[in-house]
Nucleic acid binder design. Structure first.
Lengths: 238, 238
DNA sequence: AATATCTAAAATGTATACAATCTTATTTTA
DNA sequence: TAAAATAAGATTGTATACATTTTAGATATT
């Protein structure tokens, strides 16, 4: 007579389901399996992930609020293509914000947090060496996320996260797969400065690092149409 | 509950409809007609604006992405209540970002843009003198938005806008209606520095200004439940 | 009277139906 | 043949139905 408890495993999943779909789509974009400009149709995605358009719509809306996807009225969503002319602005924004952030973070990090960062950078190094580009890029982002968190200012960390994600999209659009930017070298130096509690050096290294990434980009126009089913059915991510 | 849809006049402009609802809800929050913590139920809002829950849901989702509203699973949306402990972080974030922005903007503004700003500040002054608090606060935001745009860096202006909107919510939560912060005095000085092309002075004034606003806040806990229909049916603006 | 349990109402979560709009292929016309 | 008109298909826009969950009130129990 009481409530019939359904299989809770399926229900638990539905809570995270949206998040999983969100990450999956973002990952595919960063892996350059979906080029900028590629259209994301609601029904196709719904079939792929086994949910209705309602859920997909929410995910696309979130991605559009983050600037990863563009939604035009009656046209639907497509991967954001950043014009060459906008690229430098994003990197300048990152220099300003992440420069200020790492200055605030310098000396604040505990030994535990520093160790955590170093092991993350180790992971990053492995991904880059094993040529798994997408994973490497996301891990690199994670390093920047963690540093942002160390500053102890949640709103600032939040806007930093946005810019970092958005920049990742730009990098995946303009960086050659071969030229993987050796980010982990720079990252190690950054963490050293953090540990030493040297704000000036930390800021300087961060600005140089962001500048360095910017200069690995080849700013030329390109595009490549793709089929949604192929991309999501075959996960190239070991 | 009568299902009478109260179509005011914005029935056919379905393209802008969502935007209008968004602004209407945000305005009501800034006017303190909806206190932090107040619940926003989808069906009630749908009836008020004469649309289905589908549209309301999109608006609430957008507001939640901007941090104005909090959505909890199975609980729906409620106006974000910022803990006292978080307030200073938001203002610090604004000092960092808007400080950098106005530095970039100094000397870049055309005569036309400067004049535009001055007339906007005039408008602001009138609103404050006529005690229309909500309008005054929004106009004040607009001044900061415009300055952010002058820096010529869209991504930075974007994160600035987010923080400014979010801070407006905080101000409406913690500032006494009487103490209206005389923002337009500071703003005039800011524009003078912009026109003179003095980055150091402009930055200094901006930091002081933001600090000044922060110090008009009375950081104590409060709350007040309200009825949605009353609020939206009677527009206290004018 | 206080607490616990159960039931009804209300709100959100999701899917789906149908309308409006855009896209594409085909046919018509000059 | 090329351009324009048109019709068929695909895609998004919106409303609504139904399921699930929460909330609140009533009833029962100690």
């Amino acid at each position: 007579m009481a409530k019939v408890s359904k299989n809770s495993s399926a229900e638990k999943r539905s809570a995270h389901q949206e998040q999983l779909i969100y990450e999956r789509i973002f990952d595919v974009i960063l892996d350059q399996k979906l080029a900028p400009g590629a259209r994301l149709t609601e029904e196709a995605l719904g079939e792929i992930f086994g949910v209705s358009r309602t859920i997909i719509r929410r995910v696309l809306l979130r991605l559009s609020h983050e600037g990863v996807v563009e939604i035009k009225p009656n046209r639907g969503a497509s991967v954001t293509s950043t014009p060459v002319s906008d690229v430098d602005q994003y990197f300048e924004a990152r220099r300003v914000i992440e420069g200020a952030i790492i200055r605030m973070a310098a000396g604040r990090a505990s030994d535990y947090e520093i160790n955590d960062l170093r092991s993350l950078i180790g992971e990053e190094k492995r991904y880059y060496e094993s040529q798994t580009r997408g994973k490497g890029l996301r891990t690199s982002n994670e390093v920047h996320f963690r540093i942002a968190a160390l500053a102890g200012n949640e709103p600032l960390a939040d806007v930093a996260r946005q810019l970092i994600s958005r920049t990742a999209l730009i990098i995946s659009q303009y960086q050659d797969a071969s030229q993987s930017a050796c980010a982990y070298c720079d990252h190690t130096a950054l963490v050293d400065a953090l540990e030493a509690g040297d704000p000036d050096k930390a800021e300087h290294l961060m600005v140089e690092h962001i500048d360095h990434i910017r200069h690995t980009l080849h700013l030329s126009e390109e595009s490549a149409p793709i089929d949604l089913f192929d991309i999501f059915s075959d996960d190239g991510e070991a």
